[in-house]
Amino acid sequence: MIMKKKITIKQLTLLAMLLSLALVLSIAESFIPFGIPGLKLGLANMVILLAIYYFGFWMALAIDILRVIISSIAIGTFLAMGFWMSLAGATLSFFVMYVFYRWLKIFTPVGNSIAGAYTHALAQILVGVFYLGSWGVFYYFPVMAIASLITGTFNGFIVEMILKNKYLSTAVGYEKTTI
């Protein structure tokens, strides 16, 4: 689906800011270890979810994939196991969050974020299983999942607060860009 709306300079700037924010969060969370190198909390999902609400499918997906690639180059895990874990986590959680946003309207951004965070953890573990060749990697899933659920809930509330804020929304032109 091609964007029907033109992007204003304001929105372009906002896109760039969101990407930077997502990058900072991605790099910051890489310092929190979870046993296997590459397992991450998914703090940047907060930004991606916001982008979904503000800009829709393609722009948000672009931010998501760009932040995975750029952050992994910056950290130095490009094309290593950690990179594929991030990529899988980011894309899978993106699709889940979009589905929730677009069709499962009984969930608020909090629910979207929770679903996204859980899928993010699950996708990472599955990549780990595939990469290391053993189901034993699931050993790390419970802790990962519960930590992700907590950060997901927290992220969701932040996104909801930002979306409700009239001043921020009009600055973005949110009312007009909602599908």
């Binding site: 608020t108 909090v110 629910g111 929770i114 419970p142 999942a145 659920l149 809930t153």
Partner: peptide, 24 residues
Amino acid sequence: LKHLWDFVLLGVLLVGTTTAYVAR
């Protein structure tokens, strides 16, 4: 009320993960 389904989802995922873990 607004976040009811969100909390339901959270509960289901938490319970699901812990029971699968305990069962394993």
